[in-house]
Amino acid sequence: MGAQGGCKNLKMTANKAKKHSYPHYYLWICVFWGVIALGIIVLYVSTLKIEYVWRWYRVPQYFLYKASIEIRSDIDGDVKSIKSEGGQIIVKIEGPSGSETYKVKGKGDVRVSEGDHVFTGDVIATYQKWKPGILLYGLYTTLKVSIIGIIFGIIIGLVAGLARISENPAFKWWSIIYIEIIRGSPLLVQIFIWYFVLGTLINTILAREGLQQLPPLYYGIASLAFFAGAYVAEIVRAGIQSIHRGQMEAARSLGMSYAQAMRYVILPQAFRRILPPLAGQFISLIKDSSLLGIIAIRELTKATREVVTTSLQPFELWFVCALLYLILTFGLSMLMQYLERRMIVS
């Protein structure tokens, strides 16, 4: 939502640029860039003062790095042949207990030659392979918990939102209590409760029953889903209540049940109004998921912290971390704008 507003402002300044109606327009443009440049210079100079050495070149390896992978022999035997074939090198080993062939991809480095004797576990060849680094994994985890969180959050929110406007007192009050508790307490505390209270309970009971315990990820996603659910519930409620009551009356007057009227008439209309605030909720959830690091879920923030302790380049890495969140959130709000425009057209 925030990014959306920002975009509108940008468009407005663009319009003004055409008209140059604002006094000293170009002067202010210079001031705008000047202040930003000044901020960067001040930051840079002060890092020099404390003798911080910027090493941006160390950052990319935490996204992608070339891992050296070793191919080891599974049998004892002699190297029968080494052949190059279609961009691969095929190493054939024959021993008393059978034969085995190994394929080395690309520019692999074969460590044996024809006729050599190899034992089980000897390195036959090594090759280089690009592997995702810890930051990329962190980004992936952040996206994963946020997406699963928002999906369950929407389901929970839909149920809670419908219960909230229901006339059934039990449903209504459960929903009110749920929404108020979630919205009235910090997410950090909720995560602790999910992990240290409910998690301990559930995992202990599971262990007693001889079942496998649930990893922290589950509790983390649960805390995000229930957290988002309360906000989604309010969004759903507001969306439904924004539909004119004549719609419900018309549907009911035709003999539709409350549920049918909701499903075919009210919710499809409410959905269009719900979608933008829902996207905003998803964007907040991506940012809120940064708290999950405290229960040992290696999302982007936790991953950055770990990389900082090994690389000792905190300045670069925290900026990169922030930038990655920005890319996610900004990308999402652009996508939403695109979808909204398409929905208006159709």
Partner: peptide, 10 residues
Amino acid sequence: GMVFQSFNLF
């Protein structure tokens, strides 16, 4: 059947 002043079409 009921017909409303404000139509209330979907």
